[in-house]
């Protein structure tokens, strides 16, 4: 019995080793969102150049929506963009955009003109007010907001078809079937 005591440090080491090995697999850039199951915080963004409507938290009520943070400077946004266009073309879900930190007023509209505009409404966010409201740390980030304006899911990184099918569509479907 006394002998076994000598193995305690070894056991502790192994347990910690396994724990840390798993911990290292985590991407430290992906933060757990503090806003899941919280109402979208108040924000009110002006329209981008050439558009008449901006975006505020009041617009995100009444239906299940996607809120997508993007910017013309954001390379990964370019990757997911064709898929967002496809969602738009098939009328899958309304996508609301937050155009984050454009270098100038023309950059965002020019980008959308060139690659297409998948957004129902867009808010211009030069000072990160919208981004901070959503607790965004980088672009692209996408949130699923339910009918009552509650944030239900956060996805950081470009949306691909696989991610949509596996992670996002099931959440959207479930939220739609909920009362």
């Amino acid at each position: 019995m006394k002998r076994l005591l000598f193995f305690v440090p070894l056991i502790v080491l192994v347990v910690l080793g396994v724990y840390f090995a798993f911990g290292l697999q985590r991407d430290p850039q992906v933060l757990p969102s503090a806003l899941i199951d919280q109402k979208v915080p108040e924000f009110d963004l002006a329209a981008i150049e050439g558009a008449s409507q901006g975006l505020s938290n009041a617009d995100l009520m009444g239906q299940v929506t996607l809120v997508n943070i993007f910017g013309s400077w954001c390379v990964a946004c370019r990757i997911e963009h064709p898929f967002l266009m496809e969602l738009k073309a098939n009328n899958v879900i309304p996508i609301y955009g937050i155009d984050w930190r454009e270098p100038n007023r023309q950059a965002g509209p020019a980008w959308l003109k060139k690659f297409g505009n998948p957004y129902t409404r867009i808010g211009d966010d030069p000072r990160s007010e919208g981004a901070i409201a959503f607790g965004v740390t980088g672009a692209p980030e996408t949130f699923i907001v339910d009918k009552r304006g509650v944030i239900r899911h956060k996805f950081a990184g470009p949306i691909t078809r696989e991610i949509w099918e596996r992670q996002l569509r099931p959440v959207v479907q479930k939220l739609r079937s909920d009362s």
Partner: peptide, 8 residues
């Protein structure tokens, strides 16, 4: 700030 980004 914590309400948006968490204790992190």
């Amino acid at each position: 700030v914590v309400s948006r980004y968490g204790d992190f």
